[in-house]
Design a protein around this nucleic acid. Sequence first.
DNA 1: AAGTTGACTTAAA
DNA 2: ATTTAAGCCAACT
Length: 107
Amino acid sequence: MRIRPEEARQFREDVLNIVAQIPRGKVTTYGYIALLTGWPDHARMVGRTLHYTPGAEQVPCHRVVNAVGRTAPGWAQQRELLEREGVTFKANGRVDMDKHRWEPSFE
DNA sequence: AAGTTGACTTAAA
DNA sequence: ATTTAAGCCAACT
């Protein structure tokens, strides 16, 4: 299922709203966010949105990493930002996902 | 219009 | 632990 041009706006909005809810010290993945928006196969678009959409700076997008806990390419600061809130990394430089994966307690 | 690219994911080697 | 491969989708060449 593809996102039609009219829905694109809503999609970006949803992504930002979801990211805004990630609590301090927790992280989530692009794929999971995609799932929550109702567009399960759009992990890439989530990444694109957070990277290029103005306004992403206003939400804690540093709390979003990929499925294996790798931080965003070309964004050196991200690791420091996370560690600052208590997120721990493994020896290989990846986030300890099992420990910090965000589990929304439903609303 | 066809090919490439990337803040992705999963599986396999 | 790395690297490849294939599937995915919209934007960009």
